[in-house]
Nucleic acid binder design. Structure first.
Lengths: 159, 159
DNA sequence: ATAGATGAAGGTCAGAGAAAGTCAAAGATA
DNA sequence: TATCTTTGACTTTCTCTGACCTTCATCTAT
């Protein structure tokens, strides 16, 4: 974990542990100062790691007394799976797919074991195809997984 | 013997002696530099020597702070794994794969839900490729699944 | 009171830099 | 000859920064 962005990401996520409300406020400059980086790197971390797809909502205010507020979103399982299905599209990269799988685990929709299995399946080294084909196949696989999860849930819920 | 790829292979394998967790991170350029070879030769070594069949799992990340992570699987001498790998081979049809997955469920190695997810993943409608490629990709997927599964259990139980 | 000035936030974006990945072709070797 | 190794030119992905822009609260002079 050599890069700063990962460290800042972890730091922010740890802050959430002390915020049972799931709402956090930070100051951009204070953050940049703490990590000795350019203020814009904080935006970079936010836009790459605290996105809607990853379950966060960010808002902010400029000027004196400004802030950046990060909210951890609460989900409804069925809607959530449908949204993910829509978001996958025709083609998906390994890192995007991994983020989705990790999110499914964080939301306790899949077990740790299922997460590991799925990460292995979508891994580049385990899909011996040309990059473009690989991303397409990966999208199909992900959608198949989501569909199976939805189906499994429906059968369980509806008797 | 004594070609560079073999030497790099040995070197990496020795590095595992100091990693009791069986997880190693290397830098591609640093490696290439150490052995005075083209960086892409490191990929060659990884894809020919550190395969699932040989008991390794590889993942990586690009960009600043990038890395290549090699996991030495905990279950390399497992007879059961060897049998299944042999059954899968280089290429496997949908129905053969399905039979193996159902067998795993009957043996209570995987849950019902995992069975459903996996059957969806290996289904031909979810692998949009020419039949020959599809069977090869399916074989990789099956091996990745079995490997991830057994490794997860081995790490959980054995340590 | 109020327009304008000031300073204190945060936002944007393009570009440089840092890795790793791909693939075809050339070179060895058995 | 067939397979395995090695290379290098090109690509893609991810990180980090700095210059410049926008927004907001408050202070100041009228």
């Amino acid at each position: 974990m050599a890069n700063l962005s990962d460290i800042i990401e972890d730091f922010i996520k740890k802050m959430f542990d002390e915020m049972p409300e799931g709402i956090l406020e930070i100051q951009r400059n204070e953050m940049a100062n703490r990590f000795q980086c350019a203020p814009s790197q904080i935006n970079y971390v936010l836009t790459t790691r605290f996105t809607l797809e990853r379950g966060y909502f960010v808002e902010s205010r400029r000027g004196g007394g400004g802030y950046i507020r990060i909210k951890k979103l609460k989900i409804r399982e069925d809607e959530f799976l449908k949204d993910i299905f829509e978001a996958i599209g025709e083609s998906i990269s390994g890192s995007e797919a991994k983020a989705i799988i990790e999110r499914l685990w964080e939301e306790e929709i899949i077990t740790e074991r299922e997460m590991k299995i799925l990460c292995a399946v979508i891994n580049k080294y385990n899909l011996p195809l040309r990059p473009a084909d690989r991303d397409v196949v990966r999208a199909y696989i992900m959608k198949a997984v989501i569909t199976a999860l939805l189906d499994h849930e429906a059968r369980k819920g509806g008797k």
